[in-house]
Measured scan of single mutants.
Amino acid sequence: NQESVVAAVLIPINTALTVGMMTTRVVSPTGAPAEDIPRLISMQVNQVVPMGTTLMPDMVKGYAP
């Protein structure tokens, strides 16, 4: 099972992602793949992402898996 990126903390809208904001988990439906964490760092979210929420590609500005 592939791990997806999950918010480790509450991420406010327009916040640039840091490694400490993200964790990985096997979830369904799958979100952004765990191996993309290095690409996701410094990208901004376009909505509030509550802690424990799977990071879906459409939540991150300019990100395409």
Rank of each mutant, 00 (worst) to 15 (best):
N1C: 15
N1Y: 13
N1K: 14
N1D: 14
N1P: 14
Q2N: 12
Q2A: 12
E3A: 15
E3W: 13
E3H: 12
E3T: 08
E3L: 14
E3P: 12
S4G: 00
S4Q: 02
S4C: 08
S4N: 03
S4V: 06
S4H: 02
S4I: 07
V5R: 00
V5M: 01
V5P: 00
A7H: 03
A7T: 05
A7E: 01
A8T: 11
A8L: 09
A8N: 06
A8H: 08
V9T: 11
V9K: 06
V9Y: 05
V9P: 01
L10K: 08
I11L: 00
I11M: 00
I11D: 01
I11N: 00
I11V: 01
I11G: 00
I11A: 01
P12Y: 09
P12M: 09
P12Q: 09
I13V: 13
I13L: 10
I13E: 13
N14Y: 12
N14M: 08
N14L: 09
N14Q: 05
N14F: 11
T15E: 04
A16T: 11
A16K: 13
A16N: 11
L17C: 07
L17A: 03
L17K: 00
L17H: 02
L17S: 03
L17T: 02
T18V: 09
T18H: 05
T18G: 04
V19K: 13
V19N: 10
V19M: 14
V19A: 14
V19H: 12
G20A: 14
G20V: 11
G20T: 12
G20I: 10
M21C: 08
M21Y: 04
M21I: 06
M21P: 06
M21G: 06
M22P: 07
M22R: 00
M22K: 05
M22E: 07
M22L: 14
T23H: 08
T23V: 11
T23K: 07
T24H: 10
T24L: 09
T24S: 13
T24G: 07
T24K: 12
T24D: 08
R25N: 08
R25I: 08
R25D: 09
R25L: 09
R25G: 11
R25P: 08
V26R: 14
V26G: 03
V26C: 12
V26A: 10
V26W: 13
V26D: 07
V27H: 01
V27Q: 03
V27N: 04
V27F: 01
V27L: 01
V27K: 00
V27I: 02
S28W: 15
S28L: 12
S28T: 14
S28F: 15
S28D: 12
S28V: 14
S28E: 11
S28A: 11
P29R: 05
P29Y: 07
P29Q: 02
P29S: 05
P29W: 07
T30A: 15
T30R: 15
T30P: 15
T30L: 15
T30Q: 15
G31T: 00
G31K: 04
G31A: 03
G31V: 02
G31H: 05
G31W: 04
A32P: 02
A32N: 06
A32G: 05
A32Q: 01
A32M: 15
A32S: 07
A32V: 15
A32K: 01
A32W: 14
P33W: 06
P33F: 06
P33Q: 03
P33S: 06
P33N: 04
P33Y: 06
A34G: 09
A34C: 09
A34F: 04
A34Y: 01
E35K: 14
E35L: 11
E35G: 13
E35F: 14
E35Q: 14
E35S: 15
E35I: 13
E35R: 15
D36C: 09
D36P: 00
I37C: 06
P38C: 13
P38V: 10
P38F: 11
P38S: 10
P38Q: 10
R39T: 10
R39D: 06
R39F: 11
R39Y: 11
R39W: 09
L40E: 03
L40M: 03
L40V: 02
L40Y: 04
L40G: 00
L40Q: 00
L40S: 00
L40P: 01
I41C: 06
S42L: 08
S42R: 09
S42T: 11
S42C: 11
S42M: 10
M43G: 00
M43Q: 04
M43C: 13
M43Y: 03
Q44P: 05
Q44N: 05
Q44A: 07
Q44W: 09
Q44C: 15
Q44M: 12
V45W: 07
V45P: 01
V45D: 02
N46G: 05
N46F: 09
N46L: 10
N46K: 09
N46I: 09
Q47F: 09
Q47L: 08
Q47E: 05
Q47R: 12
Q47W: 09
V48R: 13
V48F: 09
V48T: 15
V48K: 12
V49G: 02
V49N: 01
V49C: 04
V49M: 01
P50F: 10
P50R: 10
P50C: 10
P50V: 09
P50I: 09
P50Y: 10
P50Q: 10
M51N: 05
M51L: 11
M51Y: 08
M51G: 05
M51C: 13
G52D: 05
G52Y: 06
G52E: 05
T53R: 10
T53Y: 12
T53N: 08
T53E: 11
T53P: 01
T54V: 07
T54A: 02
T54Y: 06
T54I: 06
T54W: 06
T54G: 04
L55S: 02
L55Y: 04
L55R: 01
L55E: 02
L55W: 04
L55T: 02
L55M: 05
M56D: 04
M56Y: 06
M56N: 04
P57I: 08
P57Y: 10
P57W: 15
P57A: 10
P57R: 06
P57H: 06
D58V: 07
D58M: 10
D58S: 14
D58A: 13
D58C: 14
D58G: 13
D58Q: 13
M59R: 01
M59N: 04
M59Y: 05
M59T: 02
V60Y: 02
V60Q: 01
V60D: 04
V60N: 01
V60G: 04
V60K: 00
K61T: 13
K61H: 12
G62N: 12
G62V: 01
G62C: 10
G62Y: 06
G62W: 08
G62S: 04
G62E: 06
Y63E: 04
Y63C: 00
Y63A: 03
Y63Q: 06
A64S: 15
A64K: 15
A64P: 11
A64L: 14
A64M: 13
A64Y: 15
A64R: 15
P65N: 10
P65R: 08
P65F: 09
P65G: 10
P65L: 12
P65A: 12
P65K: 09
